[in-house]
């Protein structure tokens, strides 16, 4: 394929799942009619959801899910060694995500509660960047297919992608949503990276911060505002910790 006279390489891609719901991989795999165009652009050599190929010569690795077990750590390190570019994909991989909720409880309690007496080998929830170097973080819970394709185009062109630096409020206002904070609901939109088109506030839910913090976000001011609006410390803490996107923001964590 050519673009502006430049012949585009067809990079080899692998998609790997770790601990997570696989929702992000499904995002890529759904709408089969578009997949052909994707295959024209990149060669998918390792992606359990859509093919039985298991080649190890991928140049770009997409990591889905967070890292919990020792064997996952080892597998991830191996992938890192092979991949020229490693992309953490989705809130679990980028932040720890929903899985992280269990970090609030003691690990042995969690194991007992979930697996009863079965023996299970699981460690603390870690985001990918806690274990290996991450080149690109593709945010979202789940990721969005258009944004994934946008990223793939950048990878094919060899251009560093620039995600929006500004917070969700910009998109929320552009969709003429009513601000849910005016309606008495909690929202982390002012400190969360935009790009999701404010779907949650659009549906009268506050933002939970799944896309991670916006750049140079003013947490202190937002938390002050939430307190003034009468939200309790517990309520604020619950929201802020939900996706593990804002560690160290609340004084109680420090």
């Amino acid at each position: 394929m050519k673009y502006l006279g430049i012949t585009l390489e067809r990079p080899k891609i692998g998609v790997f799942d770790f601990t997570g719901c696989e929702g992000c991989q499904l995002q890529i795999a759904n709408k089969e009619e578009d997949l052909k165009d994707l295959f024209d652009l990149v060669e998918i050599v390792n992606f359990r959801e859509i093919s039985s190929d298991r080649r190890e010569d991928y140049e770009i690795a997409f990591i889905d899910g967070c890292i919990t077990t020792d064997s996952e750590v080892a597998r991830l390190k191996k992938i890192r060694k092979q991949a020229g570019i490693l992309v953490a994909m989705g809130a679990c991989a980028c932040l720890g995500g929903v899985n992280n909720l269990r970090s609030r409880f003691s690990l042995s309690d969690v194991i007992r509660e979930v697996y009863d007496r079965h023996h299970i080998n699981t460690g603390p929830v870690r985001k990918v960047a806690d274990v290996v170097h991450v080149d690109i973080e593709l945010p979202g819970c789940p990721i969005s297919k258009p944004e994934f394709e946008w990223l793939v185009r950048h990878l094919v062109l060899g251009i560093e992608p620039q995600f929006p630096k500004y917070p969700v409020c910009v998109e929320c206002k552009q969709r003429l949503n009513s601000c849910v904070l005016d309606m008495g609901l909690m929202c982390l939109g002012p400190v969360t990276r935009a790009g999701c088109n404010a779907v949650c506030p659009r549906n009268r839910l506050g933002c939970w911060g799944c896309r991670g913090p916006s750049e140079e976000a003013n947490f202190e001011s937002l938390i002050e505002i939430l307190r003034e609006k009468g939200f309790t410390e517990e309520h604020i803490a619950e929201r802020v910790k939900f996706f593990n996107a804002f560690s160290g923001v609340l004084n109680s964590d420090r």
Binding site: L4, G5, I6, L157, G158, I159
Partner: peptide, 9 residues
């Protein structure tokens, strides 16, 4: 991108 282009672009 421009740096990657060739004459004729």
């Amino acid at each position: 991108m421009l740096h990657r282009s060739e004459p004729g672009a």
